[in-house]
Amino acid sequence: MQPAAGEAGGAATGGLDARTRTAVLRQAWSVGIATGAYGISFGALGVASGLDVWQTCALSLLMFTGGSQFAFVGVIGAGGTGVAAIATATLLGVRNGLYGLQVSEFLHDRGWQRGVAAHLTIDESTAVGIAQPTVRASQVGFWQTGIAVFIFWNLFTLAGALLGNALGDPRRWGLDAAAAAAFVALLWPRLRSRDAAATAAAAVVLTVVVAPWAPAGIPVLVAALAAVAVGLLPPTPSPSPAPSPSFPPAEIDVARTTRRAFGSQRQSRGRATPMEPEERPNAEASADEEHPR
């Protein structure tokens, strides 16, 4: 498998046959729309947390990684300092660095395109990229998904921020509970392994113990120690054959998102030329499995 990987980089869709191009584009843009739509909840929560409309939009434009953005405004909204908000958001964004390692193996972009690709490196673009059967399809999948999410995420953030501004008292509309719901929805798909469950349990204990004594924002950082503790322990045998903790990204169920957005049709998934033989079953499992718990 040596397609013209270097020449046809970037977002262009050349080098793909018509059927593959249609499949990749449909998947990329349906994920983009589905993901972008919840930018509306981020926009509303941003202004409810005390940021203004422009600060909220700046986070979506420049930080552009949903989990970190929710965490940032969550810490600020709870009365935490800017430093605590930055630290929490940055720790949550560490996974994007790992995605970068993985997608740079098939992207081959150079110069400014690589700089843009880095900005678009998020859960969704990585998930769609690594789910494709060929290098060229992976490149197109990554770029198109990244661009689609970027467009819709920012449009819906602006809409949500303006809406949130118009609503007034956030508690009256349950926006504080909406933030908890958003975090639990981001957490939910990650709780598949025994390690993840143990980490979550330890994080609950640490937070409850620390919260009454520490300033806002600190309990979340202390809870990060739960990941260190569980991660450094010897691995427990996992009931599922795919114990690697959320990598490739298990949290974005691409196939399901696609089915949701576009009825029940399924993407055909060529397996003839796997890029990383030992990663492929994982990607398949995370994309196709229907709630093993």
């Binding site: 981001l186 609950v204 991660g231 450094l232 959320s246």
Partner: peptide
């Protein structure tokens, strides 16, 4: 091991954020 830790990091942080956002 470092990879396991970084993989579990979002779980720990998001769990804590759920608790804080619900009970603070």
């Amino acid at each position: 091991r470092m990879r396991r830790v970084t993989g579990l990091l979002p779980v720990a942080l998001l769990t804590s954020l759920v608790v804080v956002q619900t009970f603070a």
